[in-house]
Nucleic acid binder design. Structure first.
Lengths: 104, 104
DNA sequence: GCTTCACATAAGCGTGTGCTTATCTGTTGC
DNA sequence: GCAACAGATAAGCACACGCTTATGTGAAGC
């Protein structure tokens, strides 16, 4: 199951932090490690999980490997969440703003 | 971390199935078990996890306990996802439909 | 060609997770 | 009160997960 890989990947806080960092711009594994108190193999393993879930893409550039957010993965979460849109409470203001920004 | 509980809860396929079933209408634990090949304690434990994550609410009704989707939890996922909306690819048709439905 | 560097993979280990069976709690209806 | 029922909790177990250290792979640069 695709959603299985996605949610399992996001269940780990370190992986969500990596994903969030990548959302700010593509980066290689070493750059991602900056200020993250994580070993090189651990980072490599986390990136492999994120990649397996389709949340992240890789692109070899010489001896560096550049990673960036895979829009397909994000879209899959959006599609899953869309099934439950009837339950989004209108009273949450922040969400209203988000909805407006989504409309374009 | 709130998102930690949410994504950890959704990482399990059985729990996602329960959540999806509840999205179709509130139900008690026994009704949820119908056609799910899951023991009574397992269901109880799964519901406890979903409740702990804020994805599901419970309401005692006599000796039954009625469960339903908690809109707050769904909203939290929406808010988390909103951070990555710049990565949603426009070329995915299904998503376009979803976006239109969101706009109201 | 050999060292250096970026990253991946392997193996091992402690901990968390999801299941089971057994038992407890609380409510209904006689 | 007590039997029947809905559900929660406890204890135990197999397995997955995330980390570590050690080693492998491939490109860069002299």
């Amino acid at each position: 199951m695709v959603e299985d890989d996605i949610f399992r990947a996001l269940a780990d806080p370190t992986r969500r932090a990596i994903f969030e960092k990548l959302a700010g711009g593509s980066m290689n594994a070493s750059a991602l490690r900056q200020g993250m108190a994580i070993s090189q193999p651990a980072m490599s393993q986390h990136l492999a999980v994120l990649r397996g879930a389709g949340l992240v893409r890789e692109a070899r550039q010489g001896r560096f490997v550049n990673y960036d957010v895979d829009p397909e993965g994000v879209a899959l979460i959006a599609q899953w969440l869309a099934k439950y849109r009837t339950y989004w409470p209108a009273r949450i203001d922040a969400l209203k703003v988000v909805l407006k920004e989504m409309d374009q």
